[in-house]
Amino acid sequence: MKELSLNILDIVENSTKAGATLVEISLQETNDTLTITVKDNGYGMSDETCKAALDPFYTTRTTRSVGMGIPLFKMMAEQTGGSLTLLSKSKQEYGDASGTIISALFYKNHIDFTPLGDVVSTILTLIQGHPETNFLYEHKSPEREVTLDTRELREVLGDVSLAKFEVVQWIKEYLNEQYSQDIS
């Protein structure tokens, strides 16, 4: 992947496939670190599936649906000296409290750090492709804070889909405007 924002897109696609109704995407930056956290309330994974999801070489017929997405994201974090953690509660064991949290720590000044890239495009692609899912997006850095909660937009929009082109364009401008503002 050329941009971490593409990994975020890929990881969140797993959340939507897991039937999540709410996906929280959080980016926290300091001067030298970036922590990307994706939390969903989907049907989660058993401990065994979690293990499989992290290891690209651990594959059996029954875990065929587990792909390269998480191992790739983990490798990109680790190559900067960072790490990735995966926590999951499966629907079978935890019922309505099921869900998954993936958190990856990156060291931004490391030579192998992959730039974040066009994260706005990732958020728009997710909303356009999954208008029924709620997304809570937050990007905090020393320079600025950017937030988006599609639940607030849904309240205004009523039965008009979030996937409508005009709506997505509005969200794009809404995010870009926040990104162009500096706190300092």
Binding site: L6, L9, E13, T125, Q128, V168
Partner: peptide, 28 residues
């Protein structure tokens, strides 16, 4: 196609090009 393979190969800008193009040409 927006799985890991598609995204890594550049599907995001392709998808956006279709979404924007279809709207621009009033094909929605």
């Amino acid at each position: 196609g927006m799985a890991t393979c598609g995204i890594a190969a550049g599907a995001r800008p392709v998808l956006n090009a279709f979404v924007e193009g279809v709207n621009k040409e009033n094909l929605t």
